[in-house]
């Protein structure tokens, strides 16, 4: 049986020795977060803001430990200044894994509105990013993106499309 996307992500992170995982939680990322917490290879913990996690991963990398920040689309939208002035300016391979909310059946108007800022922001920052949509491409894209970030000392983002993850199920009724 095919591995699920979150099993592939876990395997790729381990293969690339990405250990430190600060995150702001997200429903779609739940199985990955659970698997990372269950595996003693990783050090995973929540932070109050995504900005904080970018600082932690940047500091850890400069001291010899690789890390990745997990977040959802709305969290990414809080990051333009710190990405520009820390990993982009200092050339530090801060890795972001973004669960894509706000598209393909989104019920929350706020998420739908902030979704429109994600790609323009990544492009304006000239950050390498890839949207993962297919299970059969998942390992290759994740593995090569992480490798390239470290080889070139530049930040990169992996966007997990609802096409890959199933996204957050569309609510048929009003949901907070």
């Amino acid at each position: 049986m095919d591995r699920a996307w979150h099993q592939i992500a876990l395997d790729v992170l381990k293969a690339n020795e990405v250990r430190l995982i600060p995150y702001v939680p997200d429903n779609v990322l739940k199985p990955l977060i659970a698997a990372i917490h269950a595996d003693p290879f990783f050090h995973a913990f929540t932070v109050a803001r995504e900005e904080e996690a970018v600082g932690i991963v940047a500091g850890a990398w400069m001291a010899g430990t690789r890390g990745m920040v997990l977040m959802q689309t709305s969290g990414f939208a809080t990051l333009a200044n710190v990405l520009a002035s820390l990993p982009c300016a200092f050339q530090i391979p801060v890795l972001l894994m973004i669960s894509e909310r706000g598209t393909m059946g989104e019920f929350n108007q706020g998420q739908a509105a902030v979704w429109r800022t994600m790609r323009p922001t990544l492009e304006a920052l000239a950050m390498e990013y890839h949207v993962v949509t297919r299970l059969d491409e998942c390992e290759f894209i994740m593995d090569r993106t992480i490798q390239q970030a470290h080889l070139t000392q530049l930040p990169a983002a992996l966007v997990l499309s609802p096409l890959l993850t199933g996204g957050k199920p569309t609510a048929r009724q009003v949901v907070a």
Binding site: E51, G55, I56, G59, A60, V82, S85, L86, A89, F90
Partner: peptide
Amino acid sequence: LGSMGLAVPIALGV
């Protein structure tokens, strides 16, 4: 540089 507020998080990472 500009990432105002991140001295503590960077130090925490180190």
